[in-house]
Design a protein around this nucleic acid. Structure first.
Lengths: 198, 198
DNA sequence: CTGCCTGATGTCAGTTGCTGTCATCAACTA
DNA sequence: TAGTTGATGACAGCAACTGACATCAGGCAG
């Protein structure tokens, strides 16, 4: 087994953390001129790399903004799996989503900037939606592992995501960022009120 | 006011219904080789037209499969708007979605083929999702016009779409196509059971 | 110490989706 | 009969992506 050694004195072949530099470059350019008005060549150039290298790190131009989503997904799923068995499915999902909300809030300004970028581009919205759909699928799986049967599991997951979406949307529209987990709880209550058969 | 006259004898400059021919060509090619493996040039060629003309009729390669969606959207919205005022929001939405389900069912095999194509391509799924999101937005608007306040309106619309998605998905997975409106009703009942906070 | 190997990057050529611009010309209109 | 219009073609060009091969610092085996 070998140990990674970082050499601080001798010149390396390349500057380190090219992926991180690409991410930074992309986000700042998207912020400056908008997503559609920046080319991958420009991103690569600002990062001191080539276009080809960009595509080695990110599947496509949009993916830069969604690379971090996996961690959030894992957080949510682990929270759902770890929730007490006594908790009904919707509430288990709520636990996961609130944890995600809290995590998002801790990241400062970036999530809201990012959300505004997405709102400004149909292409990015499409990507966001399919990521959320994937999350819903993972959520449904987690519910099935809790013993929830399948029509109910998918439905609960999908509806949970809908609640989450609306809460995040409202959170983004606020002038001053409010309490996201609280917004999620509120939305879920609203949902209950709305579906409660008359 | 002028009357459209169709000349059956004299040669026209172009074969009629180029848009329809493009649509047919695209759908059959997508079915034969899959969406990703067919180029717009091939579609245009099969339709006896040029690539440029394809893009005059359809905003992009995917849009061919979603062109008809507008009518369905209008159907749903008009059903919701026309539902008795006494009906609670969720049920008004249900009326619209069931009508859509019935309309889809009447179209024979095509909707299920189309759905299978979409399921086979991430790109198409993205488009599908954003179309459904647009539908949810229109639905929410229709609810607001019924006097439903906004957090509830968006939530109801979004959740209605989630129910619809799941029902259609299950319908597509069946060997023999079952009763879609019924599936929608069932899914909604499931939802009620699931959200009924104990 | 030497020489091979590996992995991250560069280079380059090519495909495809999509757009702008201008030309064409049958059918309609005045 | 002359002018206009609208659907199409022709063509050039950009940007997103992909495949194939070259490069070479750093690590590793001997």
């Amino acid at each position: 087994m070998s140990v990674a050694v970082i050499n601080y004195d001798q010149p390396m072949r390349w500057e380190p953390d090219s992926r991180g530099r690409l991410e930074q470059a992309a986000i700042s350019l998207y912020g400056e001129r908008g997503f559609e008005n920046t080319t991958v060549a420009e991103i690569a150039s600002r990062a001191g790399l080539t276009e080809r290298t960009f595509f080695r790190h990110f599947a496509d131009k949009r993916e830069v903004l969604f690379a971090g989503g996996l961690l959030l997904q894992e957080l949510i799923v682990s929270e759902v799996s770890g929730a007490p068995d006594s908790l009904p499915p919707v509430d288990a999902v709520a636990v996961g989503l609130e944890a995600a909300g809290a995590a998002i809030q801790e990241r400062g300004d970036y999530p809201r900037q990012r959300q505004r970028m997405i709102a400004a581009s149909a292409e990015l919205q499409e990507r966001e939606l399919i990521k959320l759909a994937a999350l819903a699928a993972r959520l449904a799986e987690a519910l099935r592992e809790r013993g929830v049967d399948d029509p109910a599991a998918s439905l609960t997951a999908e509806v949970g995501i809908a609640v989450f979406r609306i809460a995040v949307e409202r959170w983004n529209e606020e002038d001053e960022p409010g309490d996201l987990p609280q917004l999620i709880r509120d939305s879920l209550d609203q949902l209950r009120a709305v579906t409660a058969g008359r």
